[in-house]
Design a protein around this nucleic acid. Sequence first.
DNA 1: ACCTGAACACCGTTCAAGT
DNA 2: ACCTGAACACCGTTCAAGT
Lengths: 198, 198
Amino acid sequence: MRQDGLERVTMRRLATELDTGPASLYVYVANMAELHGALLDELLGGLNLPGPARPAKARAILVDLLCDYTNLLVGHPSLARSVLSLWPSGPNYLRLIDSVLGLLLAEGLGRRQAAWGVDVLLQHATATAAEQGTRSESVEADGEGYRLATAIEEASAAEYPNIGLLRDEMFSGTGHQRLRWQFAALLEGIATVDDAGR
Amino acid sequence: MRQDGLERVTMRRLATELDTGPASLYVYVANMAELHGALLDELLGGLNLPGPARPAKARAILVDLLCDYTNLLVGHPSLARSVLSLWPSGPNYLRLIDSVLGLLLAEGLGRRQAAWGVDVLLQHATATAAEQGTRSESVEADGEGYRLATAIEEASAAEYPNIGLLRDEMFSGTGHQRLRWQFAALLEGIATVDDAGR
DNA sequence: ACCTGAACACCGTTCAAGT
DNA sequence: ACCTGAACACCGTTCAAGT
C-alpha cells in the first residue's frame, strides 16, 4: 500500500496516487499525523538495530546508529518535519528507543541520564534532518541558508566581535564530520552531567 | 506594523488583519520565509543579552540565555517550526550568535568547539520549542503525545526490556528541570569533545 | 456497511488590471 | 510607480449521498 513514499507526502497526493478521492484515506487513518506516524514506522523497519554491546564499544555503536537514523530521515524531509512534533509510537520506533536505552545503559550511564538522554539524542537527529531536508528541498541556491552565510561573512567585526573572531571555523568541516562530532558531544555530556547539574 | 503576531502567522491572516488583500504583503517581503525571519528578529529584540562574563560564571549565564531563547520561541510555535529550516540572518539573531560564542570562549573553549557548538545549542532550543509548541497547539488532550505515553506505559518488558527497566524515569522531572539539564549536558559535551573525538 | 464526490475552509504566490 | 482583486494551484477534513 505505502511502498515508495518519497518526498512530500500529502493526503491528496497519496489519494490520487491510489486513484481515489482524498476522503478515502480517512477510512484507514484518522488524520495526517497518524499517516506520517505509520510512514515513519515503516521506514524504521529498514533500520538494522545493533544487538547488546560490550561497554567499550557501546559509544561508537550508538554514534553509528544515530547517524543512520538521521540519514534515514534526511531522505524524507517532509516526514522529519512532522516527526518532530509527533511523538511517534509505532513498534519500530519503540524498538529504536529500546536500542538506544540499552546502549546507554551498556555504557554505564545512570537510569535517569539514560532515560532523559534518549530524548535529546533522537530529537537532535530529527531536528537535523528537518533542517537539512527543507534546506535542500528549496531548489534555488540563492535563498534561505545562503543569506546567513553571507550575513556572517559580512558581519562587521566591530558589531559582532566573536563572529569576526571565529568566522572561518563556523563553516569548517563536512556535514558528516559535524554530525558525528555532535552526537559524540551529546553523548559525552549526557554521560557526565547528572540531574543535580554534575 | 507587526506588533503582536502571536500564534499561527500566515500571509492571508496578516493581510486581513491589515485590511488588505494577500498580494500586498509581497511588496514588503519576498516570501513567507522572509516574513518569519523578520518576525523572529523583531521578537529577539525583546531578549536581553548578557555582557562579557568571567569564566566561572559563563556556563550558568549561558544556560539562562538558552532557556530564555527557548521560552521565547515556545510562545510562538509556528515561528519555531519555520525557524528550524530557515537559518535566520537578522541583526538580532547575529547578536544572539555573537553572545553565545562570546560566552563559550569565556568558558575557555577552543575556537572550533565554540563555532560548532553554537549550532547545536541554538538548534536544540528551536527544536524543543517547535516540539512543545505544536504539541500544546493541538488542543485535544487525547491525540499526539498521549499515545507515545500510553505506548511506553504498555510496552511489554519482554519485547522492549530497556523501556521496561526505565519506564518511570522516562516521565520524571518537570519540563523546566529537563530543559536546564539538557543545556547543561550539551555544554559539557561541547566543552569536552574536540573534533578528533576527544 | 463501506466507500467517496463534492464541498468547506483554508493555504502561498502570481499577475494583470486599476489608481 | 505603487498597490491589490481575482485567480491559480494547492492543502486537510467532513459529510451527505451513493453502491
